[in-house]
Nucleic acid binder design. Structure first.
Lengths: 331, 331
DNA sequence: CTGAAAGCGCTAACAG
DNA sequence: CTGTTAGCGCTTTCAG
């Protein structure tokens, strides 16, 4: 197989000009029915398909946008960011765009500049470094942030209603009669963590519930650390009767610690997680959690991006996705 | 900001030819130190960065490969395929290539042909449709399969050592004294399922252990279905003392069913999963499972792809990644 | 409705 | 080591 057939080959075989061949593919209505048919036949015979690169070159834009996951270590394997990716993927693929996926780290490694001009826009998931953001802006590449927000930057951000989610969880616990509610916070991205933490504290205060310094603990966001931290939390006297966790992994750690200590869920201890990861229903008892529609977040990122690319005058800076408490057996 | 600076602008400002500017960026060693410096300065001043598309156009190749997830419904959200993606991502980003991600479904929707010429190769994850495979081949685009295999196609496949994994699990159970071992199989992709199933049957026979028709059940690969199926399995008389599950989600269902029936793990029932999903350690007791190094699988896909792209004479058709049984508390 | 021709920005001989 | 020049395959005025 020598080199692929070009528009010239089709032009020659069909007896029309290259311009017409081009039109036939990009805007069929502007070509007479009969001509069109001739072109299609020739193309078919030659097994021709338009060369996307040449096209990009001519029209001066690619049809690609990138999604970079900005989170140390974790990548697409993080269910949350994978969910966003899923939403982006589905939406992007319905809009003639294609999606490039990478991580902040890898992107920087492979010489951003060399690549940059081959994407139209970039969606940054999580805590992106300022230098990265600036670089894209300097190159005139539209940026959308997701699950993160930087005040004063006027960058469209798609986030979940963190405060709302915490409120749903807290009202649920309070309505179940809990007063001694603790929080096990994990080192998530700073925006998310502070939203969740602040909301927790605010609501405790608002409801005039007792909150001692030791009632909030911090841990690394893995089961082991969470389990260890939970052990301490659960040995406070009087022991909290409920714990709100910064995410589901941490909640799983709390469940394990409770189990080891002989506490029954939800009778002796209510546990609520956050994110509604898929494993919530695999735990026993199933984990109550604040559901975030990651996929929707991804979709919205693409919508914002499309607006940016369409040079829409003012793209809203804040897009917030509502959360929903999924009550299960653990609370 | 008018249009971006081109190689001509740099050429003019630095006083050298465009060819030299080009060389300076693609192969600095072939340009005299002093000249190089002049070029860099001019580029800097103009905030120039090479246009990747024009480059692709000139050298007649893109620097992109695609990873398509071929699995109904599930996507990148599937931890297994996300793991592979992770491996691909890391490797690809170290080789000047960029990764396009999509699903089989979406790819077909958005007119594969139009896009095809903008990728160099494609990695197909899971049960890809023959029509898709043929289409790529017809276009001369190298294909690598992962977690799937089609006999007679001479397509490089990267798979896990399924039979080996089952053997590890079985030997573990047998060494613990289990004789009545059941299997709960889920509707995974046909290649994987048959490998796991056949290995299970073969080993039971080989060890001369009793295996009645009802000892193997089939279910959908979700917790609910698995739990229901497990209930039946566990009400057989005599009850199996161990169950090998086709994957971890199914195993989680079995654990729940066992718990409901008042069976203790591992005393009354040993459960072993497959894939070693991240939630294995969140379950209580933690789930024994056959670990598959998905990331490694992804890396190997890229290696095979690189060989294919480098026109290496014979790329091995089969690349198998070893598995490792991770023994935890559930068995 | 169709054709001719001038690029899009970069690379790769080839010549010096 | 560097410059000249001819493309890469497609789009897009501008005429006809």
């Amino acid at each position: 197989m020598s080199s692929a057939p070009s528009i010239y080959d089709v032009s020659r075989l069909s007896g029309v000009s290259t311009a017409t061949v081009s039109r036939t593919f990009s805007c069929p209505s502007r070509v007479k029915e009969a001509t069109r048919r001739k072109v299609y036949e020739a193309a078919e015979a030659l097994n021709y398909s338009p060369n996307a690169i040449a096209r990009s070159m001519a029209i001066q834009r690619t049809d690609k946008i990138a999604y970079l996951i900005c989170k140390q270590g974790a990548t697409i394997l993080d269910e949350f960011y994978a969910g966003i990716c899923d939403g982006i993927l589905h939406t992007v693929n319905r809009t003639d765009y294609q999606l490039l996926v990478s991580t902040e780290e890898d992107w920087k490694l492979s010489g951003a500049t060399a690549q940059s001009k081959s994407i139209e826009g970039v969606i940054l998931g999580g805590k992106a470094e300022m230098s990265l953001i600036s670089e894209f802006r300097a190159q005139g590449i539209p940026v959308v942030l997701v699950n993160y927000f930087v005040p004063g930057l006027e960058l469209p951000s798609v986030v979940a209603d963190e405060a709302g989610g915490v409120r749903q969880a807290m009202e649920h616990l309070i309505s179940r009669g809990h007063k001694r509610i603790a929080m096990l916070a994990g080192r998530l991205n700073p925006y998310v963590l502070s939203e969740r933490y602040n909301a927790f504290v605010a609501i405790m205060k608002e409801r005039e519930l007792p909150l001692k310094p030791n009632d909030v603990k911090m841990c690394d966001p893995d089961v082991k650390s969470a389990e260890a931290a939970a052990r301490e939390l659960l040995s406070l006297a009087p022991r909290p009767t409920a714990v709100l966790c910064a995410n589901d992994v941490i909640a799983a750690g709390v469940c394990k610690a409770a189990h080891r200590l002989g506490l029954r869920l939800p009778e002796d201890l209510a546990v609520v997680g956050y994110d509604d990861a898929s494993f919530c229903t695999m735990l026993d008892p199933e984990l109550t959690s604040v559901h975030i529609d990651c996929r929707r977040m991804g979709e919205l990122c693409v919508e914002r991006m499309t607006e940016l690319l369409g040079e829409k005058p003012d793209v809203s800076e804040f897009t917030v996705v509502p959360t929903e408490l999924i009550v299960r057996r653990s609370s």
